[in-house]
Design a protein around this nucleic acid. Structure first.
Lengths: 238, 238
DNA sequence: GACTTATATTACTCACGGGTAAGAAAAAGT
DNA sequence: ACTTTTTCTTACCCGTGAGTAATATAAGTC
C-alpha cells in the first residue's frame, strides 16, 4: 500500500505520512457526516453542532479541518464533482460513437445521483456558497451540460443519433437524471444499478438513429460488463 | 359577478365586498412578491423585511395577511398546485386515449413549470413547512405522480402506449419536466410555449406504440384544442 | 363629529446558530 | 522528563431575522 519500504520504523516521515492520512480520514468523516445531514435536513436546518455531535466531538473541533460551514458544503460538492469529472474523462477517452458515449454518460451519471455526494451536486444550492465557489460550481455545471451536448452532436455527426436539437435533448436527459437525486433513497425497491440500466436505455432510445436500431443489440461494450446486474427489482428488503 | 343587485349604493354589503376584494388583492400582491423573492434568493436567504420593502410597507404589516413566513411559503405553493389540479381535472375529464392524455399533461405541466408559482412546486423545500402543510404537499405530489402513471397505464391498456414500466416512465418524464423549473428563466431564448411543445413530443415519442407512429400525425385533438381551451390561467401575454 | 374597525408603523424581544478566545488534554518530538 | 505542536473543549460573542406589543393613522359606520 505504502510505496516506501518501511525499514525504518522510527522515521519521522513515516509518522508524518500517517498523521497526514489520519487527518485526511477525519476530514472525510466530517464530510460524510455533513453531506448526510445536509441531505437529510437541508443545509440551513442542519447545524454544525449536530454534525459534531454525530461524530462524538464538539462544534469548534470542526474548525480544525474546515474554515466554515460553507467550506464544508463546498467540499461535499467537490467530492461529487470529482466522480463526475472522472467518468466524463474516461468516456471522452473511450473509442465509441456518440450514442455509445451518451449511453455511458447517462449510466454513470444515474449511478452517481444515487450516492450522497452525487446527490449533493443537484440538491445543494450554489447560492449558499461564496461568490468564488459559486463560480466554480457554475463552471462545472456548464461543463457537464456541454458533455451531454457534445456527445449528442458527435452522435449526429457519426450517424448514431438522429438529427435533433442537442440543447433541448440535453436538457431533457439531464433533467431526468438530476431528478434521481431528489427521489432516490437507499433501501427502496429500486437499486442504483437497475435505475442506471433502465435510464441508459430509456433516455437514449428516442435519439437512436433508425439504422442502429437493431432488435436487441447493444451498440457498445458499455453494457456488457454488467450483464448480471439487469434484475430490475432485486429487492432484499424484508 | 356580484349576485346581489347593487341598487343600494350605501349598502354596507357592497362596501364589504369591495373591501374583501381589496384585501385579497393585497394578499395576492404579497404572494407574488414573495414567490419571486423566494425563487430569486431561496427561502432562507429571503427576509420578510425585503418582501415588505418591495411592497413599500414594513414587515409587521405582512402579519395582517399571513400568520407566518411559513404560511406565505405554503400559500405560494398552493397557488401553483391549484393550476396543476386544474389541468389534471380537465385532462381526466377529456375524451382521448392514454397517450393523448399523457401528452396533454406533459404540455400543461411544462408550461406551468415556467411560471413563478409553478416553479415553486419543485423549488420549495417541503421541509420548510409545518408537519401538517408538509403532509398536504406530499399528498399532492403523490397525486401528480399517480396521474402520470395512470395515463401511462391507460395508454398501455388502450394500445396507444407500448408496454413498459409506468413507474419508471413516470419518474423519467416528471424529472425532465420538474427540472424545467430549475433552468427556465424569463427572457431566455426558449419560450414556455416552445419548451412545452418540444417536451410534449420528446418525452412521449419513446412510449408511443408502433401502430400509432404515423409520420407527422398527431394522435388526437390534444394539440388543436389546447390553443383555446387549455388556458386556466388565460394570460393575455402580449 | 364620535366611535369602531382595519391597517400600518416604530420599537422591541428573543431564540438560534455560526464563529471565536482561551486554555486543557493528548500526541509527537527531543 | 521536558517542551512543542496538534487537537479538542468550555465558555462566550454577536449578527440576524422571525415574530410581538403598543400605538398611530386612515377608513368606514352611525
Amino acid at each position: 500500500m505504502d510505496g516506501r519500504p518501511a525499514n525504518d520504523q522510527t522515521s519521522p516521515w513515516m509518522t508524518f505520512e500517517n498523521r497526514r492520512r489520519a487527518r485526511d480520514e477525519k476530514r472525510e468523516a466530517v464530510l460524510r457526516t455533513a453531506v448526510q445531514l445536509f441531505l437529510e435536513q437541508g443545509y440551513h436546518r442542519a447545524t454544525l453542532n449536530e454534525v459534531a455531535e454525530r461524530l462524538n466531538i464538539t462544534k469548534p473541533a470542526l474548525y480544525n479541518y474546515f474554515r466554515s460551514k460553507e467550506d464544508i458544503l463546498f467540499e461535499c460538492w467537490a467530492l461529487g464533482q470529482e466522480q463526475v469529472d472522472g467518468f466524463i474523462a474516461a468516456i471522452d477517452g473511450s473509442r465509441q460513437n456518440g450514442l455509445g458515449k451518451l449511453r455511458a454518460l447517462v449510466h454513470s451519471y444515474a449511478e452517481t445521483m444515487a450516492t450522497d455526494f452525487g446527490a449533493s451536486l443537484v440538491r445543494f444550492d450554489p447560492r449558499d456558497l461564496s461568490p468564488a465557489n459559486a463560480r466554480t460550481v457554475r463552471a462545472a455545471k456548464r461543463g457537464i451540460d456541454q458533455s451531454f451536448r457534445r456527445y449528442i452532436t458527435e452522435g449526429i455527426a457519426d450517424g448514431s443519433i438522429k438529427p435533433c436539437d442537442p440543447k433541448m435533448a440535453a436538457f431533457a436527459i439531464a433533467g431526468s437524471l438530476n431528478w434521481i437525486g431528489h427521489w432516490y433513497q437507499r433501501g427502496g425497491e429500486l437499486t442504483p444499478d437497475a435505475i442506471a440500466d433502465d435510464f441508459a436505455e430509456r433516455l437514449t432510445e428516442g435519439l437512436a438513429a433508425a439504422t442502429s436500431k437493431r432488435p436487441a443489440g447493444r451498440t457498445s461494450a458499455t453494457k456488457t460488463k454488467k450483464s448480471t446486474a439487469k434484475a430490475p427489482t432485486s429487492r432484499k428488503k424484508k
